[in-house]
Computed example of a mutant assay.
Amino acid sequence: MSRSPHLPVSWTRTLCGAVLFAASLQACLAAPPEPAAPAQALRDTHQRLSEKLDHSSFGRPVQLDSSETPGGLEGDIYAVIDHPLPEVTAAFKGSAHWCELLTLHINNRRCKTATAQGRETLTLYVVRRYDKPVEQAFELPFVYRVANATPEHLSVELSAASGPFGTSNYRVTLEAIALDAQKSFVHFSYGYDHNMMVRLATQAYLATFGRDKVGFTVVGKAPDGKPEYIRGMRGLVERNAMRYFLTLDAYLSTDAKDASERRQRHWFAGAEQFPRQLHEVDLDTYLALKREDRQRDGAR
């Protein structure tokens, strides 16, 4: 900027400084805010959900959210658990640990770990119904990754690019922070994408054979005053998200040696707290299926 011959040098400098300050201020105001660090972001979420957690309908500080998008489904569970963060980190670091906990789910009949190209992988064998033989299971090949593990924050991610029957982009994530020396706050997320044919076929099933199946979100009241629960696609993802969350809870809560059946009993008891949504079989049938899986894979 050229200096006016009628202005003193000091005024010109002041004017230049003011222009530069205004430009800097405008740039600062236009710049997007820095994203919060992962641990702080999860703390902010805990603070935002604190009232819902304190008054949760689950009988414990748990909040479940679900969403249906044009591309797929996602379920998120937030919970305060009575386990310190070092214990949570020790339990959920390692793909072998995840294989043990994921096979607590009634439809998961086998799990194998491997290392490929420097990445840990985890392949889950899932049947469409608990009573189908393992030979009819479809495979879900996950890449396992510890995204962050510090004294204040844990983040574990499982991702599978493709799945069965036109599904894709499976994603399972677990985040945790310490609330105090004995408690942690966790966020568990489960989701996947599907094509239009899968969406329509699932909706048709849920409207006929699966019409009595419900999720956890209360959408109204029945004439008798009882809660009306969400149905359809969101009900589907809520049921599965809760089943997987209960595998985490059972794995953490039973750490004794040779604890397979103890964990199975814990998972089953957790699911039976919500019979309207999660009841499938009696305890003896569930334990027999899991015993069969252990014997079959143990003999290999």
Rank of each mutant, 00 (worst) to 15 (best):
E238W: 01
G232N: 03
L206K: 02
D249E: 14
K221W: 08
A204S: 15
G232R: 06
T247H: 09
M242P: 00
G235H: 05
A250H: 07
L246D: 01
L236V: 01
A204I: 08
T208V: 05
V219T: 15
E228I: 11
I230S: 02
A241P: 00
N240W: 04
A250M: 10
I230G: 00
I230P: 02
L246R: 00
D224M: 01
V219N: 09
T208H: 12
F216Q: 10
G210N: 09
Y229G: 01
V218F: 11
F245K: 03
A241Y: 00
L246T: 01
V237L: 10
L246C: 03
F216H: 12
Q203P: 00
V219S: 10
Q203N: 12
V214Q: 09
K221G: 04
K226C: 09
K213Q: 15
Y244I: 05
R243C: 08
N240G: 07
G225T: 10
G210W: 03
G215K: 04
E238Q: 08
T217A: 02
L236M: 13
T202L: 13
G225N: 11
R243T: 02
L200D: 11
R239G: 04
R243A: 13
A250G: 11
R211T: 05
P227F: 03
Y229P: 01
L248E: 09
D212M: 12
P227L: 02
G220P: 14
D212P: 00
P227E: 01
I230Q: 09
P227T: 00
G225S: 08
Y244K: 00
T202K: 11
F209Y: 11
K221Q: 15
T202D: 08
M233V: 08
F245L: 14
Y244A: 05
L236D: 04
K221H: 13
A241H: 00
G235L: 10
T202N: 05
G215D: 03
A241C: 08
L200E: 13
G232Y: 06
R231F: 02
M233T: 07
G215R: 02
K213R: 15
T208G: 09
G210H: 04
V218I: 14
T208M: 12
R243D: 07
P223G: 06
E238T: 02
G232I: 04
R234K: 14
R234E: 15
K213V: 11
R231I: 04
A204M: 14
L236W: 08
L248C: 04
V214Y: 07
V214E: 06
D249Y: 10
A207G: 13
A222M: 11
F245S: 07
M233C: 10
G215N: 04
Y205T: 03
Y205C: 02
T217R: 07
R231Y: 02
Q203K: 14
V214T: 12
F209K: 15
K226F: 06
T208N: 12
M242D: 02
D212W: 07
F209A: 14
D224I: 00
Q203C: 08
G235R: 07
Y229S: 02
Q203H: 02
R199W: 10
A241V: 07
R199C: 08
A250C: 12
R211F: 11
A241M: 03
R234F: 00
K221V: 10
G215Y: 01
R231S: 14
L206P: 01
V237T: 08
Q203S: 15
R199P: 05
Y229V: 04
G232E: 06
T202V: 13
